[in-house]
């Protein structure tokens, strides 16, 4: 599904990723943990093609196709989805209109038939109700005035509608109360299947109480310092990243 080899990247001109290797197969859930500044978000943004992240060496391949040099929308059409750590507010564009533009663009790129307005609305309402989002929420501007929890649920809504091959969730748990965390986690669990894969980027292990990863990777100073199963997350919670950094790889 995803193969990252010796990835080096700079963000705002500064070297952040210093040789990432990672393989994610269909049906797997991977968690990437690490302290602030270790490069977690830069990795997510490098995958999605954020303009201010510059890949300086290495490769990222999604279903065999290199992402290097592809526009963000081309990566999305290949099946990549990034749930943003800080979803952007766009007040004048209604959420529904935004979702329709996103789904239409996928259908067009993949040469699928366009959905009728009625079946699209039905699809969105169904997905929204699963995430406990009121219909009113779809009429408002994209993320405009949404609470932290609403923004994150809106990201999951987009993921459910776009059905990506690989979903990268960048600190989707941050700023959520326990109920919102459960709702988000159940959305991710409902999404995860043998046909897709999930990359969870998180600072804390509490999200992993609700979504069970197959692999946990610890990112330190732009490299994967340790890989294990979910018990690694618990060990980190108990000992902290500092202990791991001291013990080396």
């Amino acid at each position: 599904m995803l193969e990252i080899t010796d990835l080096h990247a700079r963000a705002a001109g500064k070297p952040i990723l210093k040789g990432i290797d990672l393989v994610v197969r269909p049906g797997e859930v991977h968690a990437i943990m690490g302290p602030n500044g270790s490069g977690k978000s830069t990795l997510a943004n490098a995958l999605a093609g954020r303009p201010d992240v510059e890949v300086t060496a290495g490769d990222m391949r999604l279903v065999g196709t290199s992402l290097i040099g592809l526009a963000p929308e081309e990566r999305a059409h290949l099946g990549l989805f990034l749930a943003f750590q800080y979803p952007v507010e766009i007040p004048g564009v209604s959420n529904m209109e935004f979702l329709k533009a996103a789904v239409d663009s996928h259908n067009k790129a993949l040469e699928r038939d366009e959905l009728s307005a009625a079946s699209f609305v039905a699809l969105v309402r169904e997905a929204a109700s699963r995430l406990h989002l009121a219909p009113e929420f779809l009429r408002r501007g994209v993320n405009a005035g949404f609470s932290g929890g609403e923004k994150k649920r809106n990201e999951i809504l987009q993921m459910l509608l776009l059905e990506p091959r690989l979903a990268v969730l960048d600190e989707t748990d941050s700023g959520l109360d326990i109920d919102a965390l459960r709702t988000v986690a159940s959305g991710v669990n409902a999404f995860a299947s043998e046909a897709n894969a999930v990359l969870l980027i998180t600072h804390y292990q509490r999200l992993l109480d609700h979504i069970t990863p197959d692999f946990v990777h610890v990112l330190l100073d732009g490299r994967i310092a340790r890989t294990g199963d979910k018990s690694l997350a618990h060990a980190l919670e108990a000992d902290g990243y500092a202990r791991l950094a001291e013990s080396g790889t």
């Binding site: 303009p51 963000p72 999305a76 989805f81 996103a102």
Partner: peptide
């Protein structure tokens, strides 16, 4: 807004 532009494009919406 370049952040908003990236956000939309990351959803598959062409530039």
């Amino acid at each position: 807004d370049s952040d908003a532009l990236f956000y939309l494009r990351s959803r598959g919406i062409g530039e």
